[in-house]
């Protein structure tokens, strides 16, 4: 940006100022509070909370369930973000060319977003009930009745990574319709002439998507990743309403909740929160910066 005169940009700043002030207080003020607590020894409600430096940041890794919740959270994030992006993209791909009943399909796919995670959890807890065989219930029963018995599994009670993949399933169910809509809108925004030009050059349909359409979808991808990512890192209601506070499916947000509210250890809870923010700073912020920069170049 060139050195514009203040007269030109000041009104803009003033217009955004209320939002900046609100975000500064409610977001960054609380983030600051969070770091202050994370750097203190406020391990019980009755502690004063002295500054102790960064000891919580190393001590937290001695808590076995923290490391396992981080691992669970990562698996959940990968499956949820990846799954919702892929399914959303695939559905949009299927619907891109005119098809009968498109409006109804869209409505059905968007539908789960209208339901709160608390409610989603109740249904999926049932669908993913683990009993197999004769006592099979939920999806396992459905698989058995369809002759797909081999698909039966322990779902969220599994002791392998599939427990978190199972919990990501309802989240994918809930959000992929929205991602579908975003991608569909993105596809439709690509001028037909561009695609046609590629076809004339001999590209098949897949290559048209790969080399013509996809590169145009960066803003869509940004919005999708941010929406899915922030849901994923804070996922609580869904996991909690499906499997309670079981260690097997504990994610960082549940760990945080347990430390702060069940146990009264605000310092370790805040440390967990700080790590989530740091992870975002390391993985998401470079992406944001890259996005803003590359956008300017164009």
């Amino acid at each position: 940006m060139r050195h514009a005169r203040a007269r030109n940009w000041l009104p803009g700043l003033l217009l955004v100022a209320p939002s900046i002030i609100l975000v500064a207080i409610f977001v960054y003020g609380l983030i600051g509070w969070n770091f202050k607590v994370a750097l203190s020894d406020q391990h019980h409600d009755y502690d004063v909370g002295k500054f102790v430096g960064t000891e919580n940041f190393s001590n937290i890794w001695d808590i076995r369930v923290w490391s396992s919740s981080v691992k669970n959270g990562l698996i959940f994030t990968l499956v949820f973000v990846g799954g919702a992006l892929l399914l959303g993209f695939f559905l949009a791909f299927l619907m891109d060319k005119a098809i009968k009943g498109e409006g109804s399909f869209r409505a059905v796919y968007l539908f789960p977003m209208a339901i709160s995670f608390v409610a989603t959890g109740v249904v999926w807890k049932w669908l993913m009930a683990s009993p197999h065989g004769k006592d099979a219930s939920g999806l396992n029963r459905l698989f058995a009745d369809l002759g797909l018995g081999s698909l039966q599994n322990d779902w969220y009670n599994s002791t392998t990574w599939t427990n978190m993949a199972s919990l990501a399933l309802p989240a994918v169910w809930q959000m992929s319709g929205y991602i579908m809509a975003l991608f569909l809108a993105g596809f439709r925004g690509v001028p037909e002439e561009l695609r046609e030009a590629a076809r004339v050059d001999g590209a098949n349909e897949w290559k048209v998507y790969r080399y013509v359409v996809l590169p145009q979808l960066r803003p869509v991808l940004l919005t999708s990743v941010i929406i899915l990512g922030h849901i994923s890192l804070k996922i609580f209601d869904l996991v909690y309403s499906i499997n309670g506070k079981s260690v097997n499916t504990e994610v960082p947000a549940i760990f945080m909740w347990q430390r702060v509210y069940d146990r009264g250890d605000a310092a370790i809870g805040a440390t967990a929160g700080a790590y989530i923010l740091l992870a975002v700073a390391v993985f998401v912020v470079p992406y944001l910066v890259w996005f803003v920069r590359s956008e300017k170049k164009r």
Binding site: H44, I63, R64, V65, S68, T159, K245, S246, V247, N248, E250, Q258, R259, D262, R263, G264, D265
Partner: peptide
Amino acid sequence: NNAWHNDIDNAEGQFLK
């Protein structure tokens, strides 16, 4: 107490795995 309870919950959860 709450801290003790939480620690046993976690140990038990690990044991189930």
